[in-house]
C-alpha cells in the first residue's frame, strides 16, 4: 500500500466516523460541531491526496477556521450546549429517511461502474495556487466577481436578520 493510499483510507475513515459522530450526537451540540471540524480536516487530507492543494488549504481555513467557529459561536450564544431535544418520534419519517438513504446508495452503486472517466495524466503544478488562480482570474472571472456580490448580499442579510429591531 502506497503512502497516498494509506492517507486516503485513513482520512476517509476519519471523515466518515466523525460525520456519523456529528449526526448521531444527540447530547451535546458543541461536540457535534467539533466532530464536523474533524470531518473537514479529514476531507482536507483527502484533497491533498487528490492533488488539490489550494482547495485543501481553503477547506481548513474557511470550514474548520470560519464556518464551524460561527456555528460554535451561535451554539454558545444561545446556550444550547446540551441538546435536550429527542430525535423525531414519527416512524414514518424515520422509515422515509432510511428508505431514501438506501435508494440513493442503490442508485449510486448501480450507476457508478459505467459512468466514471479514466484517470488522465496530470499537467505540471496541478492544483497549486498558480494554476487554480490563473483559471479563476481568466476563464472564471465573471463567477469570481459575482461571488463577491453574493458575499455582500449575505453579509447585509445576516446583519439585518440578526438585528433586534429594524428601524
Amino acid at each position: 500500500m502506497t503512502a497516498q493510499a494509506f492517507f486516503f483510507y485513513f482520512a476517509a475513515a476519519l471523515a466518515v466516523v466523525s460525520a456519523l459522530g456529528m449526526v448521531l450526537n444527540f447530547r451535546n451540540t458543541v461536540a457535534a460541531a467539533m466532530s464536523l471540524v474533524v470531518t473537514m480536516i479529514g476531507l482536507a487530507i483527502v484533497y491533498v491526496v487528490l492533488e488539490a492543494h489550494l482547495v485543501a488549504a481553503l477547506q481548513i481555513m474557511v470550514y474548520a477556521g470560519a464556518i464551524v467557529v460561527v456555528f460554535l459561536f451561535v451554539v454558545m450564544l444561545l446556550n444550547l450546549r446540551s441538546d435536550t431535544f429527542h430525535p423525531a418520534r414519527q416512524r414514518l419519517l424515520k422509515a422515509a429517511g432510511a428508505l431514501l438513504a438506501l435508494g440513493l446508495t442503490a442508485a449510486f452503486l448501480s450507476l457508478m461502474p459505467t459512468a466514471l472517466p479514466t484517470v488522465q495524466e496530470l499537467p505540471e503544478g496541478f492544483g497549486g495556487y498558480r494554476a487554480v488562480g490563473l483559471a479563476l482570474f481568466t476563464r472564471f472571472l465573471l463567477a469570481f466577481e459575482v461571488s463577491s456580490l453574493l458575499l455582500l448580499a449575505a453579509m447585509v442579510g445576516a446583519v439585518v436578520l440578526a438585528k433586534r429591531r429594524i428601524d
Partner: peptide
C-alpha cells in the same frame, strides 16, 4: 478534477 486533469472542478 483529478481524473480529468483539469481545474474546473477546483473552481
Amino acid at each position: 478534477a483529478r481524473a480529468w486533469g483539469q481545474h474546473d472542478g477546483h473552481i
